[in-house]
């Protein structure tokens, strides 16, 4: 079975870029200083918290995309691709939640706040978990794939809502880009963020492809076992 060279290249590049972004975060990007002179060290969490959140939205888009493809074609491979995309989404969602909670504790002095962004992202987390609960609760393979595809498409609707909600409703969650005069980043901060973001997306792609390869190997193994068992 052929190795996926592109996935390995993306994994390597993603690793280099995220490592570079890590050093840029602490040794190049300036710390935010408020007008009253307070230094906001916890803002450093932003450089990786936002990229993992964006990666979760983007990978979840592929859950919906492959779910639609599955419903259109009924080909099993699209169900597998949608499931793997959701697995990678869950991984990024958990990282986003964990880093977000730590940032919230420092900045807002609470572990959790029921404000629009956090609430809609929490719903997204529950939907992603529910996707797997649903898959595990249906025994028939065909029905499981159809229900999961329908659920995956519906669940994805929450992703753009969660992304744009801070622009639609009053929210205490920061809007870094396009949020008025106080938003935006200084060039070193912006470059650091872009490096982290590109690196994280490359890792997301690599993770998805690696899991897909694992799945293909597993299927080939099962087929060979059946062949030998005959």
């Amino acid at each position: 079975m052929k190795r996926n060279r592109l996935a390995e290249i993306m994994l390597g590049l993603g690793g280099i870029l995220t490592s570079a972004a890590f050093f840029m975060t602490f040794f190049w990007a300036p710390a935010t200083v408020y007008p009253d002179g307070r230094v906001d060290f916890a803002q450093k969490i932003f450089y990786f918290h936002v990229p993992v959140a964006e990666a979760s939205f983007l990978v979840f888009f592929f859950t919906a995309f492959y779910s639609i493809r599955f419903l259109m074609t009924r080909k099993r491979i699209y169900d597998t691709k949608a499931r793997i995309a959701t697995e990678v989404t869950l991984f990024f969602v958990l990282l986003t939640m964990a880093t977000g909670i730590l940032w919230t504790r420092v900045e807002w002095n609470v572990w959790w706040q029921w404000e629009p962004r956090l609430t809609t992202y929490f719903i997204l987390t529950l939907l992603v978990i529910a996707y797997f609960v649903l898959r595990n609760s249906v025994e028939d393979e065909e029905k499981r794939a159809v229900y999961a595809a329908a659920f995956g498409i519906l669940a994805f609707i929450d992703a753009p809502i969660s992304f744009f909600i801070t622009r639609w409703l009053n929210s205490i969650h920061p809007i870094v880009f396009g949020g008025g005069e106080s938003s935006g980043l200084e060039p070193p901060m912006l470059i650091t963020f872009i490096v982290a973001q590109v690196g994280m997306l490359m890792l997301g792609y690599a993770f998805y492809q690696l899991r897909l390869r694992e799945e293909e190997l597993n299927e080939r193994l099962e087929a060979l076992k059946i062949e030998l068992g005959d």
């Binding site: 230094v39 990282l95 964990a98 880093t99 504790r105 890792l203």
Partner: peptide, 28 residues
């Protein structure tokens, strides 16, 4: 400013790096 916030920043980056490396290690 840095000292009281440092555990949370270290915690956040620790979770991210452990998560990323753990995922890669497990899949490989």
């Amino acid at each position: 400013a840095v000292i009281p916030q440092a555990p949370y920043v270290i915690g956040a980056y620790g979770i991210i790096w452990l998560g990323l490396l753990g995922f890669v290690f497990m899949v490989f």
